[in-house]
């Protein structure tokens, strides 16, 4: 199925969760935050959050800023 991650389409397994997606992207969940369809998904819920066709995810981290 297709989802949108940070504005780009991406194919994932039907069984994919937020945790499995982050693992696939080799991202450390302690240094980022995930929003699914405009709702923040707390880190503790990543493993239990099943992705669905057309989900829009934002995966964000910290960068330099003023």
């Amino acid at each position: 199925m297709q989802i949108i991650v940070n504005g780009n389409p991406r194919d994932v397994e039907r069984t994919a969760t937020i945790a499995s997606l982050l693992a696939e992207l080799s991202l450390d969940p302690r240094q980022l935050a995930v929003e699914r369809n405009l709702e923040l998904v707390p880190r503790a819920d990543h493993a239990a959050t099943q992705l669905a066709e057309g989900d829009r995810l934002e995966v964000v981290t910290l960068v330099g800023g003023g």
Partner: peptide, 17 residues
């Protein structure tokens, strides 16, 4: 610090943290 999208293509790039 600012909050921005992870660079998913250039994951090897420098990270502020």
């Amino acid at each position: 610090v600012a909050v921005r999208r992870e660079r998913l293509i250039d994951a090897a790039g420098n990270n502020l943290l």
